[in-house]
Write a protein that binds this DNA or RNA. Structure first.
Length: 434
RNA sequence: GGCGGGGUCGCCUAGUGGCCGAUGGCAUGCGCCUUGAAAGCGCACAACGGGAGACCGUUCGUGGGUUCGAAUCCCACCCCCGCCGCCA
């Protein structure tokens, strides 16, 4: 049997047309990412083998079908003669078919290693080669020694990492009392903003099939950070981007419905492999957290503009919680495999004396939609669309909120926009320890 | 978890081994008719890949098997519906 998804599936994995027409653009992108540019030529070679195999298969298959029709109408000796010929053909069909399947599998395997092509203007280099686009607000000057978020959280009865470790292990925590309240208030504020902007609110599944995980690009370089349940072959999502992208898997969306925007509320799970010893204190880097995620399906031509809109919504949310932050244009080598460009908003964390990532918005162009077979249809036909995502609020924000709004007595001023979501409360006061 | 029913072109549906890529209806598009609309009539109408095109190939839940040939027969799995059991 031919791969039932057919050669069309393979083609959908990435923009083969771009690869064939302008392989140098893809090589350049690979180099900028510090990934293997020779992969491009390997894919092209595999593609040529695959196409030749398909041609060979289709030729014998066509002949087999034609003869088959003649067999149906033949009688006696004539039929016997036709059967002899067609038996021989059957062997050839099986042989060329398996060649075709193997060639397609080889090309698919190679293509899955290829990252998205970066957008023009993305800074070259690695993790430290980002470009600061703007800095908003001033880090507060404290006339006392600021406490870190865990100390503040413990005094408020808001964060309990000791019991988190007791029950679940390192990098787990309990949010209690005003801590739990603060998270719910923040997520509700974020969801309210998203609703006002026209997003469709979604509470998605957080366990997904391999297809959804692979389709969004999380089983490539990021695979080591993904929890897997082998017995059910399901993955725990690290972001609701995954179920939101797979929401329209295998669908064709009328162009008139675009842009289509969803706001997902979900718990997120990350193994944080390779970060041993990094950010071990408090809840800055944890295995489980909650997040409101914006997700857009748009016409590819509109993707860069939508990317900036997502960034504006993130900035609006950061303004509401009154945090000083900066916006960076992430360098090519630090992009995920599915992103063509990524902007991060990083908030000032006083006790660390540096900016830490609170939001991240990626333009994935057609990378995810090709893999998940999400397409748009307009007068010009049916083709892949672009997907983009961006953070609107996460548990990590609590770190920055507590530290930036703390007062000498250990209390924390609640940002004005959050107060309606916390029963009008203006200040969080320390409680006696339990 | 057990038993029963079912998954076919946007929706519903026919099809039990070859002239089946697949019947019919609805919906949709174009045209005729009409002052306009409806009705009526005619034509078109699944997706994907390759090709300038004629055309060729793939796909009837998924994967495998039998056969010269599978929507149709066999096996496994998935999903949906109903009933029973168990349980947060």
């Amino acid at each position: 049997m031919v791969d039932r998804r057919g050669p069309g599936y393979a083609r959908g994995m990435l923009d083969l047309t771009l690869l064939r027409d302008d392989p140098e653009a893809v090589r350049a992108s690979q180099r900028a990412r510090r990934e293997d540019p020779d992969l491009v030529d390997q894919v092209l070679a595999a593609d040529a083998r695959r196409r030749a195999a398909i041609v060979a298969f289709e030729a014998v298959r066509g002949e087999q079908k034609t003869l088959g029709r003649q067999v149906a109408g033949a009688q006696g000796e004539q039929k016997a003669a036709l059967l002899a010929r067609t038996k021989d053909l059957a062997v050839q069909v099986k042989a060329t078919e398996s060649e075709q399947v193997v060639a397609t599998a080889e090309m698919t395997a190679l293509m899955e290693q290829l990252s998205n092509v970066t957008e023009p203007g993305v800074p070259a280099g690695g993790e430290d080669d980002y470009v600061v686009l703007e800095t908003v607000g001033e880090p507060a000057a404290f006339d006392f020694a600021p406490r870190d978020h865990l100390e503040i959280g413990e005094r408020l009865g808001a964060i309990d990492t000791a019991r988190g470790a007791k029950v679940s292990g390192a990098r787990f925590y309990y949010l209690t009392g005003v801590g739990a309240q603060l998270q719910l208030a923040m997520l509700n504020l974020a969801m309210t903003q998203a609703l006002e902007a026209g997003f469709i609110p979604v509470v998605p599944p957080v366990l997904v099939k391999p297809e959804a995980m692979a389709g969004t690009g999380f089983l490539a370089q990021a695979a080591e950070n993904v929890y897997h349940l082998p017995e059910e072959d399901l993955y725990l999502v690290g972001t609701s981007e995954v179920p939101l992208a797979a929401f329209h898997m295998d669908e064709v969306i009328d162009a008139g419905r675009l842009p289509l925007r969803y706001a997902g509320w979900s718990t997120c799970f990350r193994k944080e492999a390779g970060s041993y010893g990094k950010d071990t204190r408090g809840i800055l880097r944890v295995h489980q957290f909650d997040k409101i995620e914006m997700f857009s399906y748009v016409d590819p031509a509109d993707a860069p503009a939508e990317h900036l809109r997502l960034l504006e919504w993130e900035k609006a949310m950061l303004a509401k919680v009154e945090l000083p932050y900066r916006v960076i244009d992430v360098a090519a080598g630090d992009l995920g495999g599915s992103a063509a460009r990524k902007y991060d908003c990083e908030a000032w964390v006083p006790t660390q004396g540096r900016y830490r990532e609170l939001t991240s918005t990626s333009n994935c162009t057609t990378f995810q939609s090709r893999r998940l077979r999400v397409r748009m249809r307009d007068a010009e036909g049916t083709r892949p669309l672009a997907t983009l995502n961006g953070t609107l609020a996460t548990t990590r924000w609590i770190v920055a909120i507590l530290e930036n709004h703390q007062q000498a007595d250990g209390s924390v001023v609640v940002p004005v926009a959050l107060r309606p979501f916390m029963g009008g409360r203006e200040v969080l006061e320390p409680v006696s320890s339990s």
